[in-house]
Nucleic acid binder design. Structure first.
Lengths: 110, 110
DNA sequence: TTTCGTTATGTATTTATTTAAATAACGCCT
DNA sequence: AGGCGTTATTTAAATAAATACATAACGAAA
């Protein structure tokens, strides 16, 4: 039996802006309050997590996260209101895509 | 300005079955009559082309291509009726996906 | 001023993926 | 029988991508 699968993302001029991996990262940052903790929980290298966040923030009009270094606890990272909005928006897109795939799958004649 | 992009494919039990790259390969085989010529025209290695074809044929009930080695001209590969049908089916899916993306893009509020 | 855990960044290492090269089998044709 | 160009397959090489490691900056708190 066959099924349709796919992936979807939002692009800016400089390539990928928001995709499923980036949204999971944002959600883990929201939970943990830090990039390093989020990366660890996803078994992603800190560097990659940092680069994804950097890519998103540079392409967005308003920053999706705000980072502080130094201070009590060493600093941390929070997801902004705009970040929350983008997470929600992408999840809706993803859900629509899932429905699209289900509909299309029914048309398959094998 | 942002836009939605994505990729879509048909999966079997053993992973990818048909996707855009595989369809282009099938079309080039149809044009040229050989895997090696098709690979060359796409700047793809023969090995990769062969593996993609092998993967498709193994997953399909009916073969999508038929290959002969030896003989006049060394042999060759032709796309079967089933192969043609799959090409057409995937292109329709891809077109629907393009329309989906256009619709969803209009909903983006950035 | 020292400590702490985080962000930030460069460099090296490792891992994964892709391509290249070499070789054999095939079967029609001259 | 020998030549030809294709399919088929193994092994080596090259390229790309991800990870690991090392180090510095930061700033509140003890």
């Amino acid at each position: 039996m066959y099924k349709i699968n796919g992936s979807i993302w939002i692009e800016g001029e400089r390539g990928a802006f928001i995709g499923s991996g980036r949204v999971v990262l944002l959600e883990n940052i929201k939970k943990s309050g830090s990039i390093s903790e989020a990366a660890k929980s996803m078994k992603m290298s800190y560097r990659q997590a940092w680069e994804l966040i950097d890519s998103m923030n540079k392409q967005s009009q308003k920053p999706l996260v705000e980072k502080t270094s130094g201070g009590a606890g060493g600093g941390g990272t929070i997801v902004t209101k705009e970040g929350e909005r983008v997470i929600k928006l992408f999840k809706e897109l993803q859900n629509n895509f899932r429905k699209f795939n289900e509909t299309q799958s029914k048309k398959l004649t094998f």
